[in-house]
Amino acid sequence: MISEKAQNVKLAEARRYIMERVPSLPELGIILGSGLGSFADLVEEKIVISYKDIPHFPISTVEGHAGQLVFGKVSGRKVMVMQGRFHYYEGYSMQEVTFPIRVMQVLGATGLIVTNAAGGINSGFHPGDLILIKDHLNLMGDNPLRGANLLSLGPRFPDLSEGYDLEWRQKALTIARELGINPQEGVYAAMSGPNYETPAEIRYLRTIGADMVGMSTVPEVIVANHGGMQVLGISCVTNMAAGILAQKLNHTEVMETAGRIETQFVQFVQALVRVL
């Protein structure tokens, strides 16, 4: 386990590196999931920093994740966009997976929009749907807050009764209607991966209340809440989960569906940035 002091030293070094290259600090962080990276093209006055150049930053290894931070403005808001994220299944610790969220916090960001590609469990969802996350199930077998607590950023026992900000969700539902997007919410279940779930696991997840399933997001949201950030989560349903339809799953389908709705997704997130 990494001590609180060691974690703070790493954060300070990453913060210093970024501040030497970015003229203004972000107020809002945005994480772009698999196949959804083109939102970064909207950023104005952009400064791009590769993950590999930032002290202590992991490196994204998954197709559909560009692996860079994009700083600048969207709709007049100062943003820090993660074009690609890190996953527990890549072999990183939970602290490494969530290190970028900690960096957002020490840079002063107070809000987070987190997005992902997810498998649909709720039979009312369809590939291509954009679903607001209203709650989650952490079934990854680990927790990013395990170990030394970063007391300067948050309490030992943070509250997650409203892990996904209610006010932000209500604003997002209104915007979805205005854009012609069917306003839907659901519970996101996080599994460790990297294999897709079995039909039996999906039946179990449905029984305990999951509407969609994926391999990310929850660690980031836990750490964001620990650090006092407001959070909005959006899942892009890129495929129906195992056993829902009579077909096998593959990452190509995930990328193809994400690409098909990317324009709508970008419009949605851009509109959200204006009002959150």
Rank of each mutant, 00 (worst) to 15 (best):
G76S: 07
A118P: 10
R85C: 08
G163Q: 07
L160C: 13
A148Q: 03
N143M: 05
L166W: 13
R102E: 00
L132S: 06
L166A: 15
N122R: 12
W168L: 15
V74E: 01
Y89D: 02
D129N: 14
G119R: 02
G111E: 15
Q95G: 15
R156P: 09
Y164V: 12
L173N: 00
E96V: 09
M140F: 12
M94H: 07
V114G: 04
R102I: 00
L137Q: 08
L139H: 09
A109Q: 05
L160G: 11
M80H: 04
F86D: 02
R156I: 11
L139R: 05
V103H: 01
M94R: 02
Y164L: 13
T110M: 10
Q105E: 04
L153W: 03
M94W: 12
G111C: 13
P100Q: 01
V103T: 02
F157V: 15
P158F: 12
A148G: 07
G124S: 11
Q170E: 12
Y164C: 12
V97M: 10
F86T: 02
E162A: 11
V74W: 02
R156N: 11
V114P: 06
G76I: 10
E96N: 12
G119F: 11
L107H: 03
I101H: 00
K134T: 06
S161G: 14
M80G: 01
A117P: 09
D159S: 14
V74P: 02
E90K: 05
G84A: 08
R102W: 05
N143S: 10
H136M: 13
R156E: 13
Y164A: 10
S93R: 05
E90G: 13
P158E: 07
Y89S: 08
Q83R: 13
K134E: 15
L173F: 04
R169V: 03
F125C: 08
Q95V: 13
M94L: 14
L173T: 01
D142E: 15
P100L: 07
L132T: 04
G163C: 13
F99G: 03
G154I: 05
S75M: 13
D165C: 12
V79Q: 02
G154H: 05
E167S: 15
G119N: 06
G111I: 10
Y89V: 07
G120H: 09
L166C: 13
N116V: 09
G84L: 01
L139V: 10
G124V: 10
R85Q: 03
L112G: 10
W168P: 00
P127M: 05
I101R: 01
N143Q: 06
A118K: 04
F157R: 10
H136E: 12
N149E: 06
A172S: 04
L130K: 04
N122W: 14
G120Y: 06
N143D: 12
F86S: 01
Y89Q: 01
F125S: 07
Y164N: 08
A109M: 05
P100D: 03
S93A: 03
N138K: 09
N149M: 03
P144Y: 06
E90Y: 07
G119V: 13
R102H: 03
G147E: 07
I101Q: 00
M82K: 03
L112R: 07
L107A: 01
F157E: 08
A148H: 06
H126P: 09
T115F: 08
S75R: 14
